[in-house]
Protein backbone atom coordinates (compact mmCIF):
# COMPACT_ATOMS: atom_id res chain seq x y z
CA UNK A 1 0.00 0.00 0.00
CA UNK A 2 1.40 3.32 -1.04
CA UNK A 3 -0.18 6.70 -0.45
CA UNK A 4 0.85 10.18 -1.43
CA UNK A 5 -0.36 13.45 0.01
CA UNK A 6 0.02 16.83 -1.67
CA UNK A 7 3.09 15.73 -3.64
CA UNK A 8 4.67 18.58 -5.56
CA UNK A 9 7.58 18.77 -7.91
CA UNK A 10 8.99 21.71 -9.84
CA UNK A 11 11.67 21.37 -12.48
CA UNK A 12 14.16 24.18 -12.59
CA UNK A 13 15.44 24.58 -16.08
CA UNK A 14 18.74 26.25 -16.62
CA UNK A 15 17.68 29.57 -18.09
CA UNK A 16 19.63 32.53 -19.31
CA UNK A 17 21.88 34.78 -17.22
CA UNK A 18 18.94 36.54 -15.68
CA UNK A 19 17.62 33.50 -13.90
CA UNK A 20 16.08 30.08 -14.07
CA UNK A 21 12.75 29.06 -15.44
CA UNK A 22 10.54 27.09 -13.12
CA UNK A 23 8.24 24.48 -14.59
CA UNK A 24 5.76 23.02 -12.13
CA UNK A 25 5.31 19.32 -12.94
CA UNK A 26 3.11 18.34 -10.02
CA UNK A 27 0.96 20.79 -8.10
CA UNK A 28 -0.09 18.83 -5.04
CA UNK A 29 -1.27 15.35 -5.94
CA UNK A 30 -2.94 12.87 -3.59
CA UNK A 31 -3.07 9.21 -4.49
CA UNK A 32 -3.61 5.81 -2.94
CA UNK A 33 -2.59 2.52 -4.51
CA UNK A 34 -3.71 -0.48 -2.52
CA UNK A 35 -2.25 -3.96 -2.45
CA UNK A 36 -3.06 -5.81 -5.64
CA UNK A 37 -4.86 -2.79 -7.05
CA UNK A 38 -4.93 -1.46 -10.57
CA UNK A 39 -4.54 2.29 -10.91
CA UNK A 40 -4.18 4.23 -14.14
CA UNK A 41 -2.81 7.73 -14.61
CA UNK A 42 -4.14 9.34 -17.77
CA UNK A 43 -3.03 12.58 -19.35
CA UNK A 44 -1.19 14.21 -22.19
CA UNK A 45 2.57 14.39 -22.42
CA UNK A 46 3.97 16.94 -20.01
CA UNK A 47 1.03 16.63 -17.61
CA UNK A 48 3.26 15.18 -14.90
CA UNK A 49 2.04 11.57 -15.02
CA UNK A 50 5.48 10.20 -15.88
CA UNK A 51 7.15 12.30 -13.18
CA UNK A 52 4.66 11.02 -10.65
CA UNK A 53 5.30 7.44 -11.75
CA UNK A 54 9.04 7.95 -11.39
CA UNK A 55 8.60 9.47 -7.93
CA UNK A 56 6.52 6.47 -6.92
CA UNK A 57 9.23 4.14 -8.23
CA UNK A 58 11.84 6.06 -6.22
CA UNK A 59 13.70 7.28 -9.29
CA UNK A 60 12.88 10.92 -8.78
CA UNK A 61 12.73 13.14 -5.71
CA UNK A 62 9.77 15.30 -4.80
CA UNK A 63 9.78 18.84 -3.42
CA UNK A 64 7.06 18.69 -0.79
CA UNK A 65 4.25 16.46 0.40
CA UNK A 66 4.57 12.97 1.77
CA UNK A 67 4.75 9.49 0.42
CA UNK A 68 3.94 6.64 2.78
CA UNK A 69 4.80 3.06 1.87
CA UNK A 70 3.27 0.36 4.07
CA UNK A 71 2.84 2.86 6.89
CA UNK A 72 6.37 4.28 6.75
CA UNK A 73 6.73 7.92 5.67
CA UNK A 74 9.55 8.31 3.18
CA UNK A 75 10.48 11.93 3.68
CA UNK A 76 12.32 11.34 6.96
CA UNK A 77 14.47 8.54 5.56
CA UNK A 78 17.89 8.71 3.99
CA UNK A 79 18.39 7.53 0.44
CA UNK A 80 19.87 4.26 1.71
CA UNK A 81 16.98 3.62 4.11
CA UNK A 82 14.40 4.26 1.40
CA UNK A 83 15.88 1.79 -0.99
CA UNK A 84 14.39 -1.41 0.45
CA UNK A 85 10.93 0.17 0.14
CA UNK A 86 11.35 1.47 -3.38
CA UNK A 87 12.99 -1.75 -4.54
CA UNK A 88 9.61 -3.39 -4.19
CA UNK A 89 8.14 -0.89 -6.66
CA UNK A 90 9.59 -1.58 -10.08
CA UNK A 91 9.30 0.61 -13.16
CA UNK A 92 8.65 -0.92 -16.58
CA UNK A 93 10.14 1.47 -19.09
CA UNK A 94 8.30 2.75 -22.09
CA UNK A 95 11.07 1.82 -24.49
CA UNK A 96 12.01 -1.87 -24.40
CA UNK A 97 14.81 -1.07 -26.84
CA UNK A 98 16.77 1.11 -24.44
CA UNK A 99 15.71 -0.63 -21.23
CA UNK A 100 17.97 -3.61 -21.92
CA UNK A 101 21.73 -3.30 -22.17
CA UNK A 102 22.59 -4.15 -25.78
CA UNK A 103 25.99 -5.55 -24.80
CA UNK A 104 24.66 -8.11 -22.34
CA UNK A 105 22.77 -11.33 -22.97
CA UNK A 106 19.39 -11.83 -21.33
CA UNK A 107 21.06 -14.33 -19.02
CA UNK A 108 23.55 -11.70 -17.85
CA UNK A 109 20.77 -9.13 -17.52
CA UNK A 110 18.75 -11.35 -15.20
CA UNK A 111 21.74 -12.81 -13.39
CA UNK A 112 22.88 -9.58 -11.72
CA UNK A 113 19.69 -8.76 -9.77
CA UNK A 114 19.10 -12.44 -8.98
CA UNK A 115 22.56 -12.78 -7.51
CA UNK A 116 21.80 -9.77 -5.33
CA UNK A 117 18.57 -11.42 -4.20
CA UNK A 118 20.31 -14.72 -3.53
CA UNK A 119 22.91 -13.01 -1.36
CA UNK A 120 20.28 -11.11 0.60
CA UNK A 121 18.30 -14.26 1.24
CA UNK A 122 21.31 -16.47 1.87
CA UNK A 123 20.50 -18.72 -1.06
CA UNK A 124 23.11 -20.51 -3.17
CA UNK A 125 24.18 -18.98 -6.46
CA UNK A 126 22.57 -21.71 -8.51
CA UNK A 127 19.19 -20.54 -7.24
CA UNK A 128 19.52 -17.57 -9.57
CA UNK A 129 19.68 -19.71 -12.70
CA UNK A 130 16.62 -21.69 -11.71
CA UNK A 131 14.75 -18.53 -10.81
CA UNK A 132 15.65 -16.86 -14.12
CA UNK A 133 14.06 -19.75 -15.99
CA UNK A 134 10.99 -19.64 -13.76
CA UNK A 135 10.52 -15.94 -14.31
CA UNK A 136 10.92 -16.15 -18.08
CA UNK A 137 8.38 -18.95 -18.20
CA UNK A 138 6.10 -16.82 -16.04
CA UNK A 139 6.16 -13.97 -18.56
CA UNK A 140 5.48 -16.39 -21.41
CA UNK A 141 8.95 -16.79 -22.89
CA UNK A 142 10.95 -19.91 -23.67
CA UNK A 143 13.99 -19.69 -21.36
CA UNK A 144 16.11 -21.94 -23.57
CA UNK A 145 15.57 -19.64 -26.51
CA UNK A 146 15.79 -16.31 -24.73
CA UNK A 147 18.55 -16.71 -22.14
CA UNK A 148 21.62 -16.90 -24.40
CA UNK A 149 20.40 -14.15 -26.71
CA UNK A 150 21.18 -10.46 -26.94
CA UNK A 151 18.32 -7.94 -26.85
CA UNK A 152 18.61 -7.11 -30.56
CA UNK A 153 17.74 -10.70 -31.39
CA UNK A 154 14.30 -10.38 -29.76
CA UNK A 155 11.15 -8.62 -30.93
CA UNK A 156 9.80 -5.58 -29.10
CA UNK A 157 7.14 -7.65 -27.37
CA UNK A 158 9.66 -10.24 -26.20
CA UNK A 159 11.98 -7.52 -24.93
CA UNK A 160 9.18 -5.94 -22.94
CA UNK A 161 8.48 -9.35 -21.39
CA UNK A 162 12.14 -9.65 -20.46
CA UNK A 163 11.96 -6.20 -18.86
CA UNK A 164 8.95 -7.38 -16.86
CA UNK A 165 10.79 -10.57 -15.85
CA UNK A 166 13.73 -8.46 -14.69
CA UNK A 167 11.39 -6.32 -12.58
CA UNK A 168 9.94 -9.49 -11.08
CA UNK A 169 13.37 -10.57 -9.80
CA UNK A 170 12.80 -8.16 -6.91
CA UNK A 171 9.48 -9.83 -5.98
CA UNK A 172 7.84 -6.42 -6.34
CA UNK A 173 4.59 -5.44 -4.72
CA UNK A 174 3.91 -3.00 -7.48
CA UNK A 175 4.79 -2.55 -11.15
CA UNK A 176 4.76 0.95 -12.59
CA UNK A 177 4.17 0.58 -16.33
CA UNK A 178 4.86 3.86 -18.10
CA UNK A 179 3.41 3.72 -21.62
CA UNK A 180 4.65 0.15 -21.53
CA UNK A 181 3.22 -0.88 -24.89
CA UNK A 182 3.43 2.27 -26.98
CA UNK A 183 6.56 1.11 -28.80
CA UNK A 184 5.38 -2.43 -29.48
CA UNK A 185 3.66 -3.62 -32.64
CA UNK A 186 -0.10 -3.15 -32.48
CA UNK A 187 -0.94 -6.83 -32.83
CA UNK A 188 1.32 -7.73 -29.87
CA UNK A 189 0.39 -4.94 -27.44
CA UNK A 190 -2.53 -6.69 -25.93
CA UNK A 191 -0.32 -9.69 -25.16
CA UNK A 192 1.89 -7.59 -22.90
CA UNK A 193 -1.11 -5.89 -21.31
CA UNK A 194 -2.72 -9.27 -20.70
CA UNK A 195 0.49 -10.40 -19.03
CA UNK A 196 0.39 -7.45 -16.62
CA UNK A 197 -3.25 -8.24 -15.88
CA UNK A 198 -2.39 -11.86 -15.35
CA UNK A 199 0.51 -11.06 -13.00
CA UNK A 200 -1.85 -8.96 -10.97
CA UNK A 201 -4.27 -11.82 -10.62
CA UNK A 202 -1.72 -14.55 -10.06
CA UNK A 203 0.92 -12.83 -7.93
CA UNK A 204 -1.18 -10.11 -6.35
CA UNK A 205 1.15 -7.45 -7.75
CA UNK A 206 -0.49 -4.07 -7.95
CA UNK A 207 -0.14 -2.31 -11.27
CA UNK A 208 0.17 1.41 -11.84
CA UNK A 209 -0.50 2.02 -15.49
CA UNK A 210 0.54 5.33 -16.98
CA UNK A 211 -0.74 6.17 -20.44
CA UNK A 212 -2.24 8.80 -22.71
CA UNK A 213 -4.63 6.26 -24.19
CA UNK A 214 -7.76 5.76 -22.12
CA UNK A 215 -8.82 2.72 -24.14
CA UNK A 216 -5.70 0.88 -23.00
CA UNK A 217 -6.41 1.84 -19.41
CA UNK A 218 -9.88 0.42 -19.84
CA UNK A 219 -8.38 -2.92 -20.78
CA UNK A 220 -5.87 -3.18 -17.96
CA UNK A 221 -7.70 -1.32 -15.23
CA UNK A 222 -11.07 -2.96 -15.06
CA UNK A 223 -12.15 -2.98 -11.46
CA UNK A 224 -9.48 -0.41 -10.73
CA UNK A 225 -9.18 3.31 -10.30
CA UNK A 226 -8.41 5.98 -12.85
CA UNK A 227 -6.79 9.38 -12.32
CA UNK A 228 -7.04 12.02 -15.01
CA UNK A 229 -4.12 14.43 -14.69
CA UNK A 230 -3.94 17.83 -16.32
CA UNK A 231 -0.93 20.12 -15.90
CA UNK A 232 0.22 18.56 -12.66
CA UNK A 233 -3.20 18.26 -11.05
CA UNK A 234 -5.68 15.45 -10.72
CA UNK A 235 -8.87 16.77 -12.32
CA UNK A 236 -11.00 13.64 -12.09
CA UNK A 237 -10.60 10.44 -10.14
CA UNK A 238 -12.77 7.40 -9.66
CA UNK A 239 -13.58 3.86 -10.72
CA UNK A 240 -12.27 3.25 -14.26
CA UNK A 241 -15.69 2.26 -15.61
CA UNK A 242 -17.36 5.33 -14.08
CA UNK A 243 -14.82 7.78 -15.47
CA UNK A 244 -15.01 6.27 -18.96
CA UNK A 245 -18.78 5.90 -19.13
CA UNK A 246 -19.88 8.91 -17.09
CA UNK A 247 -17.11 11.52 -17.17
CA UNK A 248 -18.01 14.89 -15.74
CA UNK A 249 -14.86 16.98 -16.20
CA UNK A 250 -14.59 18.68 -19.61
CA UNK A 251 -10.93 17.72 -19.86
CA UNK A 252 -11.69 14.03 -19.39
CA UNK A 253 -14.47 14.45 -21.91
CA UNK A 254 -12.04 16.04 -24.36
CA UNK A 255 -9.64 13.13 -24.01
CA UNK A 256 -12.41 10.61 -24.53
CA UNK A 257 -13.75 12.57 -27.49
CA UNK A 258 -10.32 12.56 -29.09
CA UNK A 259 -10.10 8.77 -29.10
CA UNK A 260 -10.50 7.74 -32.74
CA UNK A 261 -13.80 6.21 -33.77
CA UNK A 262 -13.57 2.99 -35.77
CA UNK A 263 -16.26 3.77 -38.31
CA UNK A 264 -18.08 0.65 -39.30
CA UNK A 265 -17.77 -0.72 -35.79
CA UNK A 266 -18.56 2.41 -33.84
CA UNK A 267 -20.20 5.76 -34.20
CA UNK A 268 -19.06 8.87 -32.35
CA UNK A 269 -20.68 9.84 -29.08
CA UNK A 270 -23.32 12.54 -29.65
CA UNK A 271 -21.81 15.16 -27.30
CA UNK A 272 -18.09 15.06 -28.27
CA UNK A 273 -16.16 17.87 -26.59
CA UNK A 274 -13.49 19.66 -28.60
CA UNK A 275 -11.31 21.92 -26.46
CA UNK A 276 -9.97 25.17 -27.86
CA UNK A 277 -6.33 24.97 -28.67
CA UNK A 278 -3.78 26.09 -26.18
CA UNK A 279 -1.09 27.71 -28.26
CA UNK A 280 0.36 29.68 -25.37
CA UNK A 281 -0.75 27.76 -22.37
CA UNK A 282 0.46 28.30 -18.86
CA UNK A 283 0.66 32.05 -18.52
CA UNK A 284 -2.03 32.53 -15.92
CA UNK A 285 -2.03 30.09 -13.04
CA UNK A 286 -5.04 31.48 -11.19
CA UNK A 287 -8.40 29.78 -11.46
CA UNK A 288 -9.04 26.48 -13.15
CA UNK A 289 -6.00 25.43 -15.18
CA UNK A 290 -8.22 24.12 -17.97
CA UNK A 291 -10.41 27.22 -18.15
CA UNK A 292 -8.63 28.74 -21.15
CA UNK A 293 -9.24 25.67 -23.27
CA UNK A 294 -12.60 24.69 -21.81
CA UNK A 295 -15.64 25.28 -24.06
CA UNK A 296 -17.85 25.57 -20.98
CA UNK A 297 -15.78 27.90 -18.80
CA UNK A 298 -17.41 30.79 -16.96
CA UNK A 299 -16.06 33.82 -15.14
CA UNK A 300 -15.95 31.78 -11.96
CA UNK A 301 -13.55 29.33 -13.57
CA UNK A 302 -11.11 32.15 -14.33
CA UNK A 303 -11.22 33.52 -10.79
CA UNK A 304 -11.51 30.61 -8.39
CA UNK A 305 -9.53 27.40 -8.22
CA UNK A 306 -11.67 24.25 -8.09
CA UNK A 307 -10.62 21.46 -5.73
CA UNK A 308 -11.15 17.74 -6.05
CA UNK A 309 -14.51 16.78 -4.50
CA UNK A 310 -17.91 15.21 -5.02
CA UNK A 311 -19.73 18.45 -5.93
CA UNK A 312 -22.98 17.85 -7.76
CA UNK A 313 -23.38 14.43 -6.20
CA UNK A 314 -21.13 12.58 -8.61
CA UNK A 315 -19.76 9.14 -7.84
CA UNK A 316 -16.25 10.15 -8.77
CA UNK A 317 -14.06 12.95 -7.47
CA UNK A 318 -13.65 15.88 -9.85
CA UNK A 319 -12.26 19.40 -9.87
CA UNK A 320 -14.85 21.31 -11.87
CA UNK A 321 -17.37 24.01 -10.98
CA UNK A 322 -19.76 22.84 -13.67
CA UNK A 323 -19.70 19.07 -13.67
CA UNK A 324 -22.06 17.55 -16.19
CA UNK A 325 -22.23 14.12 -17.73
CA UNK A 326 -21.86 14.11 -21.48
CA UNK A 327 -22.07 11.19 -23.85
CA UNK A 328 -18.69 11.43 -25.55
CA UNK A 329 -17.56 7.83 -25.80
CA UNK A 330 -18.01 6.08 -29.18
CA UNK A 331 -21.03 3.81 -29.30
CA UNK A 332 -20.98 0.39 -30.82
CA UNK A 333 -23.08 0.09 -33.96
CA UNK A 334 -25.53 -2.76 -33.68
Amino acid sequence: MITGTAVTKTFRQRGNVLGRREVPALRGVDFTIGKGGAVSFIGESGCGKTTLGRIIAGLETYDSGEIVIDGTPMSGLSHRRRQPYFRRIQLIHQDPYSALNPTRTIHQTLEAPLRLRARQAGRPRSWGDVRAEELLALVGLDPGYVLPRYPHQLSGGMRQRVVIARALTMDPEMLVADEAVSMIDVSLRLGVLALLKDLRERLGVSVLFITHDIATARYIGDGGELYVIYRGQVVERGATETIINEPVHPYTQSLLSATPVLHGLERPGPERVVPTEALDEGKADAGCLFARRCPFSTSRCEAETPVLGHDGGTGQLHACFHPRRRSVVPLETA
Binding site: F86, L91, A99, L100, N101, T103, R166, T169, M170
Partner: peptide, 25 residues
Protein backbone atom coordinates in the same frame (compact mmCIF):
# COMPACT_ATOMS: atom_id res chain seq x y z
CA UNK B 1 19.35 5.33 -20.84
CA UNK B 2 16.69 2.99 -19.62
CA UNK B 3 18.99 0.12 -18.71
CA UNK B 4 21.14 2.22 -16.39
CA UNK B 5 18.07 3.57 -14.69
CA UNK B 6 16.68 0.06 -14.42
CA UNK B 7 19.89 -1.08 -12.76
CA UNK B 8 19.56 1.72 -10.23
CA UNK B 9 15.92 0.88 -9.68
CA UNK B 10 16.89 -2.73 -8.99
CA UNK B 11 19.30 -1.48 -6.35
CA UNK B 12 22.34 -2.99 -8.06
CA UNK B 13 25.62 -1.78 -6.55
CA UNK B 14 27.39 1.16 -8.19
CA UNK B 15 30.34 -1.12 -8.86
CA UNK B 16 28.14 -3.26 -11.06
CA UNK B 17 26.48 -0.33 -12.81
CA UNK B 18 29.77 1.30 -13.70
CA UNK B 19 31.79 -1.82 -14.39
CA UNK B 20 29.24 -4.06 -16.05
CA UNK B 21 26.72 -1.72 -17.62
CA UNK B 22 28.41 1.59 -18.39
CA UNK B 23 31.94 0.53 -19.28
CA UNK B 24 31.03 -2.19 -21.80
CA UNK B 25 28.73 0.26 -23.55
Amino acid sequence: RGFIEAARGLGLPTRHIVGRELLPS
